[in-house]
Design a protein around this nucleic acid. Structure first.
Length: 417
RNA sequence: GUGGAAUUAGUUCAGUGGUUAGAGCGCCAGAUUGUGGAUCUGGAUGUCGCGGGUUCAAAUCCCGUAUUCCACCCCA
């Protein structure tokens, strides 16, 4: 047992699992590009202050889950706990507000949160995300959800539930918060301690509480959705209409709040029953005040983050099979050391010609080489000996049915196509 | 941060105080001389998570600790 182990909450992703990762990464990039999103790559760590402002000082993520450290120059830096803040920073820093709108970006990142580990939750985890800046209307909200819907469809995912909600803008939220407090105030003694804290700080969060004793009051409480200002209400209706026209099914869930401070109006998530209590595969929403809060011009924005580990879990749970790694097409076996040299030369030339080929690298017996070819799933094998080296011809064996046919060695690449 | 369960070969697991700790799978080699898949035979590999303690004797009992899984909280 090795004494060096991967740190808590991290894990190694090994073959053949990596092929499943490559598959989803490729599919996501492809769908995102088709929707007009361009890839952005960003630093893994940022100034701590960015997350304090961008994610929100009051969030659990910033208060207790960040990997924060001082570098040798005394700067406070943090490993990113999510992707949006960094994208917003880069958007402002690189003058992207002057680009034609909407500016649409996507990314594949790792993120870090210091939390206790459980199913579908790691300290280092992977997200696919996208952000769209500069479009204020509901059409872009639906476009983004459409992107996810197409991605899930192409991954072969069924039964992934989309839930949507609106949490309003700063204007209607202020009056709603008063309404919410009024409704809960008589019951403060009965709801949990945490919710008492939330009552002053951010009463919206109370709606997300799972405490049984809080549930009755939550269900009786007014929902933001029913108290939107006219603009926010129109936005929500507009988005629903867009989704209807795109043929995307959704459920309105008044309980969706999202954990990050920056959200306004639209919030949504894709949920599953197969990821443990962490049912959320993907969460996102609109953040119309964030760019300005990060020092840029007032710019509407919307984005989402998709948990790759959770997506993969969901794919496995729904029985979506992962196509196997491309097997070596041709195994070049050799009967002795001398022909082994020739076999390796042929193998190299096949690879140059674009043919996946394997050979023996351990000086093993012919029998062992054939065994290896079989295990690798090679479709064909040739055996190289002194006869073959002299005549330049060999028997090409089909590993599936065991049949052989005589071929010229210098035409191997063409023969197996 | 809180609670529960677990940790023995590469892997899945058996072994609950008594010699040199086992099995399946996998790996390596062989079953007459240049051919895989089946079968058979043989082989290698363990600081029994780590550190203390109890005992004549600990994988086994006790304490601590780390990690994993599950749950709370929160989120991807």
């Amino acid at each position: 047992m090795p004494s060096m182990k991967a740190p808590k909450g991290t894990r190694d992703i090994l073959p053949p699992e990596t092929s499943a990762w490559q598959r989803v990464e490729k599919a996501f990039s492809s769908v995102a590009a088709r929707f007009g999103y361009a890839e952005i790559r960003l630093p893994t760590f940022e100034h701590t202050e960015l997350f304090q402002r961008g994610v929100g000082d009051t969030t659990d993520i910033v208060q207790k889950e960040m990997y924060t450290f001082l570098d040798k120059g005394g700067r406070s830096l943090s490993l990113r706990p999510e992707g949006t803040a960094g994208v917003v920073r880069a958007y402002v820093e690189n003058g992207m507000p002057s680009l034609p709108t909407p500016v649409k970006l996507f990314y594949l990142i790792t993120a870090f949160r210091y939390e206790n580990v459980q199913k579908g939750r790691y300290r280092e985890f992977h997200q696919f995300g996208a952000e769209a800046f500069g479009a204020a209307g509901p059409a872009i909200d639906a476009e983004m959800i459409g992107l996810l819907s197409v991605f899930f469809e192409e991954m072969g995912l069924k039964r992934t539930g989309l839930r949507i909600n609106s949490i309003g803008c700063p204007v209607c939220r202020a009056s709603y918060n008063d309404l919410l407090r009024d409704s809960l105030r008589p019951h403060l003694a009965e709801i949990c301690g945490l919710c008492n804290d939330r009552f002053e700080r951010n009463p919206l969060r109370i709606l997300d509480c799972k405490e049984p004793k809080c549930r009755p009051f939550i269900e009786g409480a007014p929902a933001q959705l029913d108290h939107l200002c006219p603009d926010c209400a129109a936005h929500f209706e507009g988005m629903k209409g867009e989704l209807d026209r795109l043929g995307i099914a959704y459920a309105v869930d008044r309980g969706i709040v999202r954990g990050l401070d920056y959200y306004t109006r639209t919030v949504f998530e894709f949920v599953s029953e197969n990821v443990g209590t962490q049912g959320t595969i993907c969460g996102g929403g609109r953040y119309d005040g964030l760019v300005e809060a990060c020092g840029g011009p007032a710019t509407p924005g919307i984005g989402f983050a998709l948990g790759v580990e959770r997506l993969l879990m969901e794919l496995a749970a729904q029985g979506v099979v992962n196509p196997p790694l491309e097997p070596p097409t041709l195994f070049v076996a050799a009967v002795d050391d001398t022909s082994g040299q020739e076999a390796r030369r042929i193998c190299h030339q096949l690879r140059r010609a674009g043919v996946p080929a394997e050979a023996d690298w351990n000086g093993r017996s012919l029998k062992a080489q054939m065994k290896a070819a079989n295990r690798l799933g090679a479709r064909y094998a040739v055996v190289i000996g002194s006869d073959e080296t002299t005549t330049g011809r060999a028997k090409l064996k089909n590993m599936k049915d065991g049949t052989e046919r005589d071929v010229a060695l210098d035409r191997l690449a063409e023969e197996i196509r």
